[in-house]
Write a protein that binds this DNA or RNA. Structure first.
Lengths: 233, 233, 233, 233
DNA sequence: TATGAATGAGGGTTCATTCAT
DNA sequence: CATGAATGAACCCTCATTCAT
C-alpha cells in the first residue's frame, strides 16, 4: 500500500490556507466522530479522512478533545441558530412545536445522525469537559421551545399540572427515540408524516385537559374506590 | 506492580464451583461496567472487583465484549421477566402503562442507573455486536407493554391513528429522557410523583381522541375488572 | 534484524519472578540512565537493555520518572548506608574526611560515573519531582561528613570563621570536579594518589588557622593599607 | 493554531540586516536556553522570543544544536575576554584568585545562572558535540587563572606538592558548587561576603604548606607589587 | 528573504489478551 | 484450574526540520 490516501479524494490542495485546513479538519472530524464515537475516533483516522498527516491535526487543534468540542459546538451552533431565528416568529405554541419537531427530524436524519448518537453517548463520564460542553449546547438548543412552552403554560395554552421539565423530557425524549430507531434499524421514516404524527401525539399530551374529561376521571376514581370498599378483604 | 488483589477482601472461598465463579464475575462486571461504561471498564478493574486474577476472567469468558454482553443480557433478563410476569395480570392498558413506567424508573434509578447509561451509551458504534444484543434485549423488555398497547389499539382503548412504533417511541423516549436527566444532573427525582405524572402525560397522548368516550371506556374497563375480582373468591 | 535482543545476553529467563524482574529492570535502567541521562533514556532503550518488551517496564514501574527515582534512590541508598556505617567509627575529622573522599572517588569512578552525571544534570527543571528526590538523597549522602565537620568546628578542630555551607561546597565541589574531569576526559586517575592529595588539599583549607599566620595576615593588611595611603591617587 | 507571534511585540523592525537578525536570534536563544535548558528549549519558543517565524531560525542557523553552540560560545567568549583582559593586570596570585572568584559569582549569579546551569547540565550525553564545545570554552575560561597558578607554583607562591589539575578542580569545583547551591535552593547569597570567604578558603588550600613562610611570601609578593605600582607613575 | 504549512520520527503510556507454570 | 508474567498493537501527542511560495 504505497500511498494510503490514494483512494481518498483530497478536497483541498496539499498546501492550503489556515482557514481551509481548519474547515477541512472540522468536516473530517465531524464525519469520523459521527461514525466511530469519541473513543472510537482516533486522531489517525481523522487525519486520514482530512488527507493530512496526524501531526497536522495538532497544528490546528490542541488535541482530540478540543477538536471534538469544536465539532459539537459548531454543529449545535448551526441548528440552534436556526431555531432561535425561526421559532419566535411562529404563531402559537402548536406551530412552534410542529416546527421544532420537524426541524429536529430533518436535521438529524439528514446529516447529523452520527453526531446525535455521539452527543447521546458521550454525555457522560470519562470526558467530563465534553459532557459539560454538550450539556450547555443542549440547553441552548432546547431553549426556544422550552421558552414557548413556559409561556404557553403561563397563558393556559399548555397544561399547567405538569412540571416544565417533564414536558421537555416528553418532547425531546420522544424525538430522540424516533431518531434512535431510525439510526439503529437503518430505516429512514417518511419525515413529513412522522413529524406530523409526532407533533400531534405530543400535543395531545401537553394540551390543557378538558374539563369534562377531568370530571369523568374524578367519577372513575370514586367508583373505583367504592368498589374497593365493597369487596370483602 | 502485580498482586493488586492482596488488599481486597475475597467475597468467595478460594475454591468455588464454576457456577459461583461465573456469578461472582458477572456481579463484579456489572458493578464495574455500571460505574465506568464499556470503554472505561478495564479487565483489570473487573478482575480486581471479583477478587481474581485478570487471566481468570478469560478462563470463564471469551473476552471483555462477551462478558459485557452477558451482563447486559442477564440484567435485561431480570427486569424483562418481572414485566412479563406482572404486566399481563394488570387490569387495563392504563394500569399496565402505569406499572411499566413506575417499574422502569424504580429499577433504573435504584441500582441500574449505571447500566442504563451503559445501555444508552453503548447501543452503538465500535461494538456492533454489543449494539445488536442490546437491541434484542430492548425488544424483549418493551414487548409486554407493546403487546398491551397493540391490544388496546385493537379494542379502541388506545388511539388508532398513530403507528404503534410511534407510541413506543413516545413512551420509552420520555422515560429514557427522564432517566438521562436524573443521571446527568445527579438529581434523583421523587419517583412516585414522577411516575404518576409521566404516566398521566403519556396517557393523555395515547388515549383515544374522543376524550369523553375514552374516559368512559376506561371506566367500563375498570368496573369490569373490579367485578371480576369481586366474584370468584 | 530478526531479533533485536540477539546480541544481548539475557540475565534472566523469559519468565522470571517479580523480584528478579524488578532487579533486572533497575539494573538495566541504571545503565541506560547512566549512559543517556534522563531525557535521553527512552523506555524502549531500557526495555531493550533488560531484554523485555516496553510494556513490561510499565508492569513493574508506574512510569519512566518513577523508575528513575527508584534508580537514584537505590544508588544513593547504597552509598549513603556505607558512609553512615563507616564514618562515625573513624577517629577524628581528618580521618573521616579522608574516608569520604576516597569512598566518593572509588564509588563514582567505579560504576557510578554516569549516575553521578545524571544526578548533576537532572538536579534542575523539567522534572521537579526528580530534582526534589535528588536533593533529598544528596542531603542524606553528605550528612555524615557534614556532621563531623560541624562537630569539628564546635571543638575547634575545624576552622570556625567559615560557614559550614561553604565548607561543604568546597569539599563536594572539589570532588565532583575531579570526577567530572575524569568523566569528560575519559582518563581514570590513580585513585589512591588522587584521594590522598585531594584530602590534603581540602584539609589545608578547613584546618584551623595557625595563630602566627593570623598575625602575619594582620600585618599584611596593615602594610597594604599603608602603601595604599602612601600612593598618590 | 499558527500565528503565535501576533501578540508579541517585535523588538526589531521588520526588515533588519542579517547581522541584526543573527544578534536578535542569539539574544532570544540565550534567554530561552537559560530558562529551559537545552532539551526544554524548543525552536518554537526561540522563534517566538525573537519575534520571527520558526523557519527563520533555520535560515540563519543550521539547527537547534548549532544555535545553542553559538550561544554558549558567545557567552563564554564574553566572560573569558573579561578575564583575559583583567587577570594579567592584577598583582599577585592571591589578587588574581580573588578577582576570578568574584567575577565568577557575579557573572553567573547575575544574569548567567540559567546558562551556568545549562553548561553544567548539558556538558554531557545526548549531544556530544555540545559537550565538546563546552569543554573547549571551559578550558579558555579557566586559562587565565590556571596560568597564574602555574606561575605561582613555579615561583613558590603556590604549593608545589599538588598537580595543577587538582588545584583547578578545587577552585572551580568549589565555585560551581556554590553556584549550584544558589540555583537549586533559589537563595541568592551575599556575593561580596561569599566571594571573600571562598577566596580565603581556597587560598588556605593552595598556599604553600609552611604557613608562616607562605604568609611571608605573600607579604613579600604584595609589597613587591605595591612598590612596582608606586614607582613608575 | 521570510514564512505558513506540513510532517516523519519518535515519545511515554494503556490494555485486552495469551501462555507456561 | 488459576494465575503471574509478559506483550503486541495502538493511542494521543511533540517537535525539529523541510519546502513551496
Amino acid at each position: 500500500m504505497p500511498s494510503p490516501s490514494s483512494t481518498l479524494q483530497r478536497t483541498t490542495p496539499r498546501r492550503a490556507s489556515t482557514a481551509h485546513r481548519v474547515q477541512d479538519l472540522l468536516a473530517a472530524a465531524r464525519r469520523v466522530f459521527s461514525e466511530h464515537g469519541y473513543q472510537g475516533a482516533t486522531t489517525a483516522l481523522i487525519a486520514q479522512a482530512a488527507g493530512v498527516s496526524e501531526a497536522t491535526v495538532f497544528t490546528y487543534f490542541a488535541g482530540k478533545r478540543e477538536l471534538c468540542i469544536q465539532v459539537i459546538t459548531d454543529w449545535y451552533g448551526e441548528i440552534s441558530a436556526e431555531l432561535e431565528r425561526d421559532v419566535p416568529r411562529l404563531p402559537g405554541v402548536h406551530a412552534k412545536l410542529a416546527h421544532v419537531v420537524r426541524a429536529h427530524l430533518v436535521t438529524l436524519l439528514a446529516d447529523g445522525s452520527g453526531l446525535c448518537a455521539l452527543v447521546l453517548s458521550e454525555g457522560r463520564a470519562a470526558e467530563p469537559e465534553l459532557a459539560a460542553v454538550i450539556a450547555d449546547c443542549k440547553r441552548r438548543y432546547t431553549a426556544p421551545l422550552m421558552h414557548a412552552l413556559a409561556e404557553g403554560q403561563a397563558q393556559g395554552l399548555v397544561r399547567q399540572d405538569m412540571p416544565l421539565r417533564l414536558l421537555r423530557d416528553l418532547v425531546y425524549g420522544a424525538m430522540e427515540h424516533v431518531l434512535w430507531d431510525a439510526i439503529t434499524t437503518l430505516k429512514r421514516p417518511r419525515i413529513d408524516t412522522t413529524a406530523e404524527q409526532l407533533t400531534e401525539l405530543i400535543w395531545s399530551a401537553i394540551a390543557p385537559r378538558d374539563a369534562s374529561l377531568s370530571a369523568l376521571m374524578r367519577l372513575r376514581d370514586e367508583v373505583t374506590q367504592a368498589l374497593r370498599h365493597a369487596q370483602p378483604s
